[in-house]
Amino acid sequence: MRWMLQFWDSTIGKKYVMAVTGVGLVLFAVGHMAGNLQVFMGAQVFNDYAHKLQSLGPLLWIARAGLFTMAVLHIVSAVQLTMRARAARPVDYVKRESQIATWASRTMRVGGVLLAVFLVFHILHFTTGQLHPAFSKGGAYGNVVIGFGNVWVAIFYIVAMTFFGLHLYHGVWAGVRTLGVAKPNPNPMERKLALGLAIIVWAGFIAVPVGVLLGIVD
């Protein structure tokens, strides 16, 4: 097992950890998004779905522990790599122009911090309810409608999910590359794959707050 520690110590190892946990988190996000969309099928369906998840018992906690671990590893490796990158250029340029780096790639770090803040807020908002004005345990549908009734909260969700989409656009392509699973190619498939996935996830997530704001969900 020593090699794993050694692997973790290397920059490439940390990138692998980011990529692998990233894949796990993306899969969760896709599932989460699919679940969310049931809100458009009415209060009954959505509340039943929420209830079903709640009643998974130990399984739910295992899943939560797994997600938490992945998120922590993802964030820890991101922070360490960022610190490393900062240290690698102690004196910055007076002028440096980006050549081909996408806006998505350049906002990975700031977007990542925003997403971490968002996650904490989101859990306190819809899972535990401390930051919710009228949280009702078991009333998931009502929680959503009331929660997004606050325009600023809805906008915060939309902004955060937009960054999430950007995060995915660069992250999925970079992750696939980092893992070295795709064949090197001048016109890589993974770029398109990442774009498609990012758009679907972004659209799926913002659909709910947008739906509440537009009164489609009420």
Binding site: T11, K15, A85, S105, R106, R177, P184, N185, P186
Partner: peptide, 24 residues
């Protein structure tokens, strides 16, 4: 530093070496 696959290296490389190499 580590690689974030920005692609900047490939854009400025005078010999046009592709970041495919990094994957390898």
């Amino acid at each position: 530093g580590g690689c974030s696959l920005f692609g900047e290296c490939m854009a400025v490389c005078p010999k046009g070496i592709s970041i495919d190499a990094i994957q390898r």
